[in-house]
Amino acid sequence: MVNPRLMVWLKGLAAAAVLTVALGGTPSFAQTGEETAHATDSVEQEAGVHEEKGLPQLNTKTFASQIFWLAITFGTLYVLVTKVGLPRVGAVLEAREAKISGDLDKATQLKAETDAIVAAYEKAVAEARAGAHKLLNETAATADAAAAKRTADVVAGLAAKQKEAEARIEGQKQTALANVRAVAAEAAAAAVAKLAGVSPDQAGVDGAVDAALKERA
């Protein structure tokens, strides 16, 4: 804070000044040196004009007035400070305090709200992600099932068509074979008639053709 040596120095000077002034009326250090005569002259002149010697502070004639006006001014100041001045400053300081703590409370509240919103958002995102996964899995399963069913249907359809085609081919084969027998019998009868000059009976031709067909098959 304050340099203590400085304070000691000041107090020494103060004490010296007060003592010399109170005892002699003029500080002794003012009378040393070349200016002694002038200083003394002027002091005497001043004293002559005001006809009061010594310390003005010790002139008891002024005490009543000083106490009186101190009481009036200090009393008024005390009342004004107590009733007007300090309440005004105090109100300003309190308003600021309230404003700051109010703002801090509001900020805390807003932060809590923000945190809640962030938490709700993250929860929603997590739920949506889980829902999407589920939906994806379900869809994939459904699609797989549908595909498998369709494949099976197609396979079954193809098998049925194949069977049908095979049946048709078999039928046509039988028809063709029957036609072949008839044609062969006719050709055999014609050939016999041409070569032997006789027309063979139908039963003998049929029997020979059947035997030949059996041999081939």
């Binding site: 009543a64 007035s65 009186f68 006006w69 001014t73 100041l77």
Partner: peptide, 21 residues
């Protein structure tokens, strides 16, 4: 019966009180 004149001292007391207020 008391001399309670308004002096230079009183003046500056008033000045101080007015300035503070």
């Amino acid at each position: 019966g008391h001399d309670v004149s308004f002096t230079n001292s009183s003046l500056y007391m008033v000045v101080a009180a007015v300035l503070v207020t």
